[in-house]
């Protein structure tokens, strides 16, 4: 067993347990954005940063395995400052604040991120509603990669691809052919994991769903 200390509380965990799992086992919480328990930890978003004694800087809780004697501070000031700045930057690219039910909105609330301080370029609306159930709202994509990984690791359809770089980074089905003309099997795992509604259910966008003929 591995012994660690989290926010002053001692805990023994199985070797290989991540810091995030250990925090949650203690009933604590660390905000996450690119993490989904159905997928392998990815460690891309830097929102789950925590302080670790002796480490040169904050470490991502989702990908870091617990080491014997580790001392973790989930309220570490630097970690919180970086995570907050990351979320603020993410929000600054969106044309409107994320819908309240989304995970991104919940993370912003948890980190107390308000109106972004950086008015910069924002994404224009870019919707694809050709699929009977699944809709893209590309302007809401934050390139967390969760949908792409859900498609690969949960379903195994390999229909989604990360596209573009920097500000134009986004997600596409197939070679941007849309869900219908890709390898998509319409399982909806992407919409289920998306933290921003960049991929969502069409029925949740239109209040009254048309009845089938």
């Amino acid at each position: 067993m591995t012994r660690i200390t989290i926010d002053g509380r001692d805990l023994e965990v199985e070797p290989g347990t991540t810091v995030l799992d250990a925090v949650r086992a203690l009933g604590g919480s660390v905000p996450t954005l690119c993490f989904d328990e159905r997928q392998a930890p990815f460690g891309a978003c830097r929102v789950c940063l925590v302080g670790a004694d002796g480490a040169p800087g904050p470490i991502p809780a989702c990908t870091t395995p617990c080491r014997d004697g580790m001392v973790i501070d989930t309220h570490d000031e630097t970690a919180r400052r970086v995570a907050t700045a990351v979320v603020e930057l993410v929000l600054s690219e969106l044309p409107e604040p994320p819908a309240e039910h989304t995970e991104l909105a919940a993370v912003a609330r948890a980190l107390d991120v308000g109106e972004p301080r950086w008015p910069g370029a924002q994404h224009d609306g870019d919707h694809d509603e050709r699929h009977p159930y699944l809709a893209f709202q590309h302007e809401l994509c934050i390139s967390c990669g969760r949908c792409v990984r859900a498609c690969e690791e949960v379903q195994g359809a390999f229909a989604l691809t990360a596209t573009g770089r920097g500000f134009t980074a986004n997600v596409a089905a197939g070679l941007d052919a849309g869900f219908l003309d890709s390898a998509c099997v319409s399982c909806g795992a992407c919409a289920d994991t998306c933290p921003t509604d960049a991929i969502t259910e069409l029925s949740l966008l239109t209040p009254v769903h048309p009845r089938p003929a």
Partner: peptide, 25 residues
């Protein structure tokens, strides 16, 4: 209006298919 998979479903572990998720009309 929507169906989502239960994360603690023993057989599906947070996943489902286009029938279970969407075919409720």
């Amino acid at each position: 209006v929507s169906i989502s998979p239960a994360l603690d479903g023993p057989a599906n572990r947070g996943h489902t298919c286009l029938k279970g998720r969407f075919a409720h009309q």
